[in-house]
Simulated scan of single mutants.
Amino acid sequence: MERNEEIMPILEKGQAAIWQLLFAFADSMALKCAVELRIADIIHSHGVPVTLNQIASEIDSPTSPDIPYLARIMRSLVHKKIFTEHHLPDGSDTLYGSTETSRWLLHDAELSLVPMVIMENNPWQLSPWHCLSQCVKEGGIAFQKAHGCEMWDFAAKNPEFNKIFNDAMTCTTKIMMGVVLTEYKDGFNSIGSLVDVGGGTGEMIAKIIKSHQHIKAINFDLPHVVAAAPLRQGVSHVGGNMFEAIPSADAIFIKCVLHDWSDEHCIKILKNCKKAIPPKSGKVIIVDIVLEKENDDLYQDTRMVFDLVMMAHTTGGKERTEVEWKQLLMDAGFPRYKIIKIPSIPSIIEAYPVM
């Protein structure tokens, strides 16, 4: 009997953990709901906490919003500390306010995670997750199993998805580049020309040359991606395939691209990077996740989840440990590297073709 009394709390704790994981998707769906209804924007526009009726009155809807539904969504978001809740002293109403978290859900803010919330919760991106066990059993690519083609081909054929994806990449670039430019500003000083491989619509390299105007900048991505890129002062957009050739420059910048691909694919990309830079003075600047078992900073859980995201969405992509990065770089002809930790999800890895 005593032994059962000792075991039961342990079993109950385990059960509670499974329940939380089982319904973890619900938090993401509530977040998506808040973004689609622009709840953070509505509250923020007032500058002070507002009532449920005030929020409802500003939701873009062909009919009157369902207040009880909205109240339940807000209760969940308050519980997760995305919004605050204040009860009036007389108990007549409840006021909902912004937080530092909800500011990341503003649509028109310079730094916002709204496009990422929209992309990662889109049905196109959610369906591959249901194929993970199938991938374990028989190998293959989850996105291809769900949609009949790889994500990059899907984007090339689907303008709506292509825009959703590019918007998400642009928003994360804005967030990460602020940190990169602060932590790595001296690293760009000696570079005369720079190619951003997989640079999307050019947001990233435009940020770099704004602070380092001496750099000749090339934004390099697939033709359908650069075709949708806006004109950016000082940036040349070049379409091509990084598996075939990369434009020549003093240095290559490659952010959150290598984690999209298998080791074999990455070696091809990195070997093309090596061909594109001077053999003695050139370098490749990689901005990507470095997994660490002992790291307990704010982003560690997110780094681990990103590895599963790569499994669900990419062509054999994965997040790598330092040991794995070292081997990858060696195999591609980069015997020397340096990891620079920054207060963000990724780190900066400098790779050199000579010792």
Rank of each mutant, 00 (worst) to 15 (best):
S57K: 15
E85G: 01
P9G: 02
E160T: 14
Q134L: 08
C149M: 14
A206I: 00
T51R: 05
R3L: 14
V309M: 10
D90Y: 07
M29A: 11
Q20I: 03
D221Q: 07
P115Q: 08
L111Q: 08
W19C: 00
K157N: 15
A351Y: 01
W104A: 10
S211N: 13
E244D: 13
L258C: 10
I285R: 09
D167W: 01
N121A: 01
F253S: 02
L113D: 02
M310N: 06
K185W: 05
L270F: 04
I10V: 14
K157A: 15
T63L: 12
T170A: 13
V197D: 13
L231N: 11
G202E: 06
G282P: 08
R3V: 14
N241G: 04
T51E: 01
A26P: 00
Y352C: 07
S57N: 11
M204E: 14
T99K: 07
A206K: 08
R336T: 12
F83H: 09
A228W: 00
I277D: 05
H130Y: 08
Y337V: 09
G140M: 07
P230Y: 03
Q15T: 06
C33Y: 11
I67Y: 09
K13N: 09
L222G: 02
M29V: 08
L308D: 00
K81V: 07
L95V: 07
D221V: 11
D250V: 04
L70N: 04
I205V: 11
V323S: 05
I349T: 07
Y184C: 15
P128K: 13
P278A: 08
F154Y: 15
L291I: 12
H313M: 11
I254V: 15
S262K: 01
I42A: 02
L291A: 09
K157S: 15
R320D: 10
S262C: 03
I289M: 09
I208Y: 14
H147A: 05
H86N: 10
M119R: 15
G47P: 01
L37K: 10
F154H: 15
R38F: 02
E324G: 03
V323D: 05
V117F: 08
E319S: 03
E319G: 01
D260Y: 06
Q54L: 05
A24Y: 01
V117W: 03
E350N: 15
S133Y: 11
G202C: 05
V323Y: 00
V257T: 09
D297Y: 07
L106V: 04
D301Q: 12
N122W: 05
S281D: 10
G333K: 03
A227G: 12
I191F: 13
D93H: 09
T170M: 08
V50Q: 06
V238L: 12
V78Y: 02
T314W: 12
T315K: 12
K283T: 11
A16G: 02
M169L: 14
G192P: 00
D263S: 06
L95P: 02
K318Y: 02
A156H: 06
I118P: 02
L308V: 10
K341H: 10
N295G: 01
E322R: 08
A56C: 03
I252M: 13
A34N: 05
E350K: 11
H212D: 10
T173G: 13
D250E: 15
I286H: 03
V136Y: 13
